[in-house]
Structures are given as structure tokens and as C-alpha cells.
Nucleic acid binder design. Structure first.
Lengths: 185, 185
DNA sequence: TATTTAATAGAAAGAACGTTCTATTTAAAT
DNA sequence: ATTTAAATAGAACGTTCTTTCTATTAAATA
């Protein structure tokens, strides 16, 4: 098993465990056991638990963007609908237990600035992306529209924890359709 | 300082700390220090950290309902609008850092069934309340409408962490108005 | 083949965790 | 005034935490 495969195993196991139970609730021992590596193998790849968390968040962010970008075409007719659809796909695949970035903010605010920044920057980048889409589509109130779509995305993520990704996603899609129609008229 | 004042101090301090940093991230030592009680005073009132968490969640649930009930009149003309307004008031007063119930579910799912149940039951009760309101208002698709209002509420809670309760609340209110208009026509 | 590099298991460190114990002081009840 | 009960500070317990160390084995490179 090559070096990078070990690192990959650690990242995958740790991401799953942190996502399922929280950053502070999961110990390195469990991560080491479940990813079948030695303690020092983890510490050779990541200098501390918190640096491991940073790398997991960066990975997860790029995964999320690949969901958004693969589903939303350039010059799409309905970019917001496609964004919500892509987000729902993400929820089905990797988002059934809430938003890992919000949880990072919640668990590390005031105690680890780097982790908090990674998470906050991600959220602000999504907001900026929505704003760009709205502006490109010619909405004069693109600022408000971006916030509102963001509320829908975050709401769907949270509701997926309670009623499942399917139900939460469908309702969010239904709402964005209604809103788009209202905004056009 | 009487016995029940001590208990109250512990509950308030612990609620604030758990809400700010998470259940696993905050130790009893900090709670004991910041609420100015002795270790055994805490253990005389609460048999364990997790029982303390249970009581905090139950308290918080009743606080949330008092926000909802005080703002929503019987036979209101626009109960959904009032629900969202009450929720936004809650966010401004006690909800700037996400939903404590969702976080309880996330941190204790699979490891503490009692805590998880308290949180899940609360969320389902809110959903049931929304359904009742929709049905009473005569919406035939009250089931879907309840889910959709819930998505708005949860979305506003999450967005409050990123852009503040004011902005998040305003956008959620704006959306519910648009949706209500669409549902009526 | 010889040499360097990675990965291993597991012990050990030292701090922090939840919880219990002890001995003392304060307050209430008789 | 005497007894009973509560609350106190803080030590202590056993466990777990993150991190480091050691000594050994496996892989890759030269």
C-alpha cells in the first residue's frame, strides 16, 4: 500500500467519523484504528488533529464545488434551479447529516481561527457565486436573491437531517420554482 | 444563594457554553468555574454531564415554544408569517449560532438515544404544528407547505450564523411573503 | 546489494476528561 | 443550642485525549 493510499485512507475515515459525530467527539485513536494505519503514519502526514481537520475541510470544499460546477452549465437558462438540483444531489450523496462547514464554525469559533476561516470563506464564496449568477441573469435585486437561494440551500441541508434528503430536496426545489416564477412576473 | 439559584446558574452557564462551542468541546470544569459552584453542587443537581444536557435541551425547547406561542394568535390571518417573525425574534435573542437541537442530534446520534430523541421529537413537533396551521387555514397541500416553511426556518437559522440574524431573518420573511402570495393565487 | 526512506506496533508522556471522595463550612430545622 | 442536612473547595481516581518516542520491519532507490 503506497504512501498516498494511506493518507487517502486517513482522510476518508476521518471525514466520515468527524461528519457523523463531530470534531471534538471523535478521537485520533478511532481514526487510526478504522483507517488501519499506525499512529506515526498519521502524524507523518498531518502535524496535528486540527491540521487534519483543515485538510479535510479543504477537500470537502473542492468536492462540493465539483458538484455545483458539473451540474450548472455556462449560460444556463435557469442557473438557480440547477444550483438547487446540484445541491440536492450533494445532500443525497454526502450531506445527510448537516453541513460540515457550519459545524466547523460552531465547534472552533474563537478557538481555532484557521479552521473557522476555511469554513466561513467557503460559505461566503457560495454567496458570491449566487450573486454572480443573479447579476448575470439580469436581476436588479440579485443581492437579495442570492441570500434567498442561500437560505433555501441551508434549509434543505438542515431539513435533510430530519426528514431525509429526498423530501427536503423536493421541497426546496418546489420553492425555488415558485420563487423564480414570482421573480419573473 | 439558595439551592435553586445555583441550579439556575449552572443551567444558564452550561447552555451558553454548549451553544457557543458544542457539547463535547466544553468540559464540566469550565461550567463549574464560570457558574461559581462546587463540583458536587453540580452533581447533586444533575447526575451526569449528559443528564445536564438533557435538561438544557428541555428548557430550551420550552423557551422556543414560548416565542412561537406568544407571537402567533389563535385564528391569525397569516399564521405562517407570524411564525417566521417569531422565529426571527428567537434568532435575534438566542439563535445567532445555529440550532442547538440539530447539533445535539449530530453530536449524539448513535451514542445517546435519550438526547437524540429529545432533539428529534422537538423538530417533529414543530413540523406537526406547521401542518396543523396549514390545515386550519384550509390549504389542501398543507403537508408540503409545512415542510417548506420548515425549510425556511432552518435556512434562516443557518444563514444567521453567516450573515447575521437580521439579514437572514429579513430574507426569510421576504420569501414567505412571496410564497404566500403564490399559494393564494 | 547497500542504503535510505516509510510504515509499523505499541509504550509512554502529560494534560484533560467525567466522576467520586473527603473533610470542612454554612445554613436549616428541631 | 443541637442536630441534621447542603454546599463548599479541592484532591484523587481511572480513563481518555493528543502527541511523542522507540525499536522493528518493509519498500524503494541507488
Amino acid at each position: 500500500m503506497s504512501r498516498s493510499l494511506k493518507k487517502e485512507a486517513i482522510l476518508n475515515t476521518a471525514e466520515a467519523l468527524f461528519y457523523d459525530h463531530g470534531f471534538h467527539a471523535v478521537g485520533l485513536k478511532q481514526i487510526i484504528n478504522e483507517s488501519n494505519v499506525a499512529t506515526m503514519t498519521l502524524y507523518n502526514h498531518f502535524s496535528s488533529k486540527e491540521h487534519l481537520i483543515e485538510e479535510i475541510l479543504k477537500n470537502r470544499e473542492s468536492q462540493y464545488w465539483s458538484y455545483l460546477n458539473s451540474s450548472v452549465e455556462e449560460e444556463s437558462h435557469d442557473p438557480f434551479l440547477e444550483i438547487v438540483e446540484a445541491h440536492v444531489k450533494w445532500l443525497n450523496d454526502k450531506g445527510k447529516k448537516g453541513c460540515m462547514f457550519l459545524r466547523a464554525i460552531e465547534e472552533f469559533n474563537g478557538t481555532n481561527n484557521e479552521i473557522e476561516s476555511i469554513a466561513r470563506n467557503h460559505k461566503n464564496k457560495v454567496l458570491g457565486h449566487l450573486r454572480d449568477l443573479g447579476q448575470k441573469k439580469g436581476y436588479s435585486n440579485y443581492e437579495d436573491i442570492a441570500f434567498q437561494i442561500a437560505v433555501l440551500l441551508e434549509g434543505a441541508t438542515s431539513m435533510a437531517e430530519i426528514v431525509g434528503a429526498q423530501q427536503a430536496g423536493n421541497q426546496a426545489l418546489c420553492m425555488v420554482e415558485t420563487l423564480l416564477q414570482a421573480w419573473r412576473s
